[in-house]
Design a protein around this nucleic acid. Structure first.
Length: 199
DNA sequence: CGGCCGATCCACT
DNA sequence: GTGGATCGGCCGA
C-alpha cells in the first residue's frame, strides 16, 4: 500500500530518508511496470542546507517543484544526461527532498535491462541515481508528478530495515557545500533483500 | 546573451 | 585514479 500524505509532510527529512529504505519505488511508464526496493537515500534539508538546490530560498522554474507539498517527484537533469529522482517532503513552501540513490530490482527486471542496455541482472543495476532513473524510465520531464498518481509512486511492501542495519555517511558529489558537505545525510541499508526478490 | 558547471557514469590507464 | 561526454539551468553583464 502507498504511504499516506502524512508520511511525506513531516518536518524531519532525515527520518523520512531512513524510512524510505526498504520501501518500493514503482513506475508505470510507456506501458511498462517496474518496482524496486530502495536501498540508498540522501536528505536535502531545504533553505539552510548548502548542498540543496533550494539553499537560501533559491526559487526558480526548476526548483519550484521542491516547494510543492510533500508527496511529489522532483526530477532534474544532471551533467546533461542523467535524470535524478527525488521525493519532495514537508509542507508546501518548505523545500525538503530525498534523493533516491540506489535500489534493487523487485519486478519488471526485463524492462529495466532493456532501458539500460544491459544483458543480465547484476547487483549494481540500480545503484547510482542516474542508472536508477534510466532503468525505471524516470525522465526529468516527469518532474512535478504526484506520488499519488499512476505514473510514479512509493509503496510499503511490509519490508522493514531496522536502525542497526542503516549506515549513515556524508553525501556524494557535493563538495561545494562547505561545512554542510560533512553532514551524515546519506543512508544505506546494509541488509540483503533476497528473501523478498523473485527467484 | 554568453559562459560556466553540475546531487553522474563509464571507459581507460 | 582520471578525464570526457553532454546540455539545461543559472547567474552576471
Amino acid at each position: 500500500m502507498k504511504p499516506d500524505l502524512s508520511f511525506y509532510t513531516r518536518n524531519d527529512v532525515v527520518q523520512i530518508s531512513r524510512e524510505l529504505l526498504g520501501k518500493a519505488l514503482c513506475t508505470n511508464i510507456d506501458g511498462k511496470r517496474t518496482e524496486a526496493i530502495i536501498v540508498e537515500t540522501e536528505a536535502y534539508a531545504g533553505i539552510t542546507d548548502k548542498a540543496s538546490h533550494a539553499y537560501d530560498g533559491r526559487r526558480t522554474k526548476r526548483t519550484e517543484v521542491m516547494f510543492y507539498e510533500g508527496g511529489h517527484a522532483y526530477i532534474y537533469l544532471c551533467y546533461g544526461m542523467y535524470s535524478l529522482f527525488n521525493v519532495v517532503t514537508n509542507v508546501k513552501n518548505i523545500p525538503h527532498a530525498v534523493l533516491i540513490r540506489g535500489a534493487v530490482a523487485l519486478s519488471g527486471t526485463e524492462t529495466m535491462l532493456q532501458r539500460t542496455g544491459r544483458k543480465k541482472l547484476t547487483d549494481d543495476l540500480l545503484v547510482g541515481p542516474g542508472k536508477l532513473s534510466k532503468a525505471l524510465g524516470l525522465h526529468f520531464s516527469l518532474t512535478g508528478s504526484s506520488l499519488f498518481g499512476d505514473t510514479v509512486w512509493i509503496e510499503d511492501k511490509g519490508i522493514t530495515v531496522s536502525p542497526e542495519n542503516i549506515i549513515s555517511a556524508p553525501r556524494i558529489g557535493i563538495d561545494y557545500a562547505e561545512e554542510d558537505a560533512l553532514l551524515p545525510y546519506r543512508f544505506t541499508a546494509r541488509q540483503n533483500f533476497n528473501e523478498y526478490l523473485p527467484k
